[in-house]
Design a protein around this nucleic acid. Structure first.
Lengths: 211, 211
DNA sequence: TGTAAAGTGTTGCAAATGCAACACTTTGTT
DNA sequence: AACAAAGTGTTGCATTTGCAACACTTTACA
């Protein structure tokens, strides 16, 4: 369920959590989960519910950095959450477990066999996150909306490696526009052009790629 | 010197490298260091020299993903280097140490005290990389060149926390334009406007921020 | 089931951006 | 010191993009 604890048994997990001095807190909807947390290095696990991390820049512009669901991990290891300007708001009633980063390498935990699994899980999470960031950067650096779209579609095609040239859109166009950081209406226009040029074909939620 | 081995003594390092089955290779200038490597999960350390990782997309467009110097770490944990389309070219004569990812959690290494330092270093490297990626994404998602520039300058100001409103440019404008993914000449024009509007002031390599 | 909220699709227009091309300056190399 | 290579600064012009505004459809939920 929780990625960080994958392949660790129930019994071991209890022990692990105790050694890590993990503490679980419950939050109501629309609450900033970081308001009472000291923002030193920590890892947070979403046991249930979901949150949204929002960054407000020097000029007051707000951007959603991340949407996080049950089982996912966030914290100062994965984003600059220590910064003022970042707040994490619960989208529904949510339960979160906090672990201080320093505890991850405490003396006691090191003596347990399950530690190596735990570390492997942690490294896996970090590398997966790095991958998602790298991909987004690759897309964001494309000069035109057309290039962003075509590269995005190609990426989805590659990810669902069934050999077919057809992809299924799981996100809304509104979300996609945000992800690619382009104006939604301008993106819709570009999609229209792509259809007119016969480069893509859209049938409901499916897109056929002719390139 | 090498971030991954920080705080590990010479003697311990020899042992660590042996246990990790680390192998060092020498490369001439302008060589693809991944040509003879099986691209399974691995970590690579630059012992000396420097490299440049280039991605060629489905349409043949090339983009520099990363520039890496002596002491730095790269590999499948930090980028999608397994993908075809990615090549890492030496910019000069370069020495690289390769470690298979699986070796990082082998049985023997686990028994050594320095292992915990090694793991800490690895996690630190991964989180630092995540941070640099997050910052770049934050900048790339700004809608206008002006916003990208102002946010970038603010970020540099915050990073060099000496309280002054003056920052020093360490990169060339050409590099900055690439980093922010905008046309260089368009960026220069925007910088001119920022000066005209009295928002910034440029004196040699220094920029004074009036915002 | 009805109503509000979110998402889709489209357009005209103004503004921002990329591109090409140029002269000029700085940096690095032999 | 001499030359090549890289970087800076500028401009006109065409294209792309964002913005505003709209009608319409789908989804969520009380």
């Amino acid at each position: 369920m929780i990625k960080l604890f994958e392949n660790i048994s129930e019994k071991e997990l209890l022990k692990l959590k105790r050694i890590l001095k993990a503490s679980t807190q419950k939050f109501k909807r629309n609450v900033n989960v970081l308001s009472n947390v000291n923002r030193e290095d920590f890892i947070a696990l979403i046991d249930s519910g979901s949150i949204e991390c929002i960054y407000t820049d020097y000029a007051g512009n707000k951007t959603v950095i991340e949407e996080l669901e049950t089982g996912e991990v966030f914290g100062s290891l994965t984003s600059s959450i220590q910064e003022e300007g970042i707040s994490c708001i619960t989208k529904e009633d949510t339960e979160i477990t906090f672990i201080e980063y320093n505890q991850i390498t405490n003396d006691e935990i090191f003596k347990n066999d399950f530690y190596i699994i735990f570390i492997k899980n942690l490294i896996k999470i970090l590398t997966e996150q790095l991958n998602t960031r790298n991909i987004r950067i690759e897309l964001l650096t494309k000069k035109t909306t057309r290039d962003k779209l075509l590269s995005y579609f190609k990426y989805i095609e590659k990810k669902t490696k069934d050999g077919s040239k057809t992809i299924k859109m799981n996100t809304s166009y509104t979300e996609l526009a945000n992800y690619l950081s382009v104006d939604r209406s301008a993106m819709m226009r570009e999609i229209k052009y792509l259809k007119e040029d016969g480069i893509i074909e859209i049938i409901g939620k499916k897109i056929i790629l002719h390139y």
